[in-house]
Computed example of a mutant assay.
Amino acid sequence: MSHTPPPQDAVQVTDLTVRRGKRTVLHGLSTRIPRGSITGLLGPSGCGKTTLLRSIVGTQLVQSGTVTVLGEPAGSAGLRRRVGYVTQAPSIYADISVRENVAYYAALYGRERTDTEDALTAVGLRDHADQLGDQLSGGQRTRASLACALVGKPELLVLDEPTVGLDPVLRVELWKQFHDLAAAGTTLLVSSHVMDEADHCDTLLLMREGELLAQLSPDELRADTGEQNLENAFLTLITRGARA
């Protein structure tokens, strides 16, 4: 009996258009996100990054186009245990401990108690595991939300600006964790408006005003623009597009 191999791409987006009221937020956007890699979604605030992420996890109404995730239409019931999503606003309960928050999500995903401890260790919160959600700093709340997503061991992990407000040391630690996850086969899609994080990614999706300017690696972006600094390289792409 032959088995159909899984699609090479974790995500396929084709001609995606999203409108809010009279405003078009995404303009016929198409892209593919390869499995087992870290894809960075970069662009200025308000360019449509969160709308694209919400479309991929199935929480966004779309005007037209298709989004396929792990071989299924985005938002399908079968994807609930296969896709993890960490929003910009920390999604933890304030009146229970960090450990109880993570254990709750572990139970939803049918994971073991050891998975809860592993997730807490991965985000560096073992020493704060007994603190209530409302006793945490902003950075700790972000890490707790990440632990709640990691405990489900998703095949695709979607992270909306996960390092905002974190100190530089913790940002380095989180990116190391992201690389470890990708090496183990998890696909990560990470949005940011900080271009110095682009070097951590295998592939970059560069957005501006609801459109995809380019999809390429950091080194390809440097070669294409002649700029070593990635922020300057991105600005060069924007200027070139404006002239065109």
Rank of each mutant, 00 (worst) to 15 (best):
A144V: 03
K153R: 15
G124I: 02
K153I: 14
E231G: 10
G110C: 09
E231L: 08
E155P: 03
A147E: 02
Q215G: 05
P154S: 10
D167P: 09
D196E: 07
R222K: 15
A182L: 05
D180H: 02
Q131A: 11
S145A: 11
L205Y: 10
T186G: 03
G124Q: 00
A183C: 09
D130P: 05
Y109H: 15
A119C: 04
Q228I: 12
S137W: 04
I238W: 11
S217E: 09
T116L: 03
R143T: 03
T142N: 09
L188P: 02
T225Q: 09
G210S: 09
Y109E: 14
H193W: 08
Y109K: 11
M195P: 03
L120C: 03
T225V: 11
A144Y: 02
G133S: 00
S192C: 06
H200P: 00
L159D: 01
I238N: 03
T236H: 15
V190R: 02
A144T: 05
Q135V: 06
F178H: 01
G210F: 12
V194I: 12
L206T: 07
R222H: 13
E231V: 06
T239C: 13
D219K: 15
Y109R: 14
V194L: 14
D134Q: 05
C201W: 00
A223F: 11
V164G: 09
K153N: 12
G226M: 10
G185P: 13
T239K: 13
T114E: 15
A144S: 13
R126M: 15
H193A: 04
T142L: 07
R113A: 15
L156H: 01
A223N: 11
L125M: 09
G226Q: 03
A182F: 05
E209S: 15
V164Q: 13
V172M: 07
E209L: 14
D202Q: 08
E117L: 15
E112D: 11
V164H: 13
L174V: 02
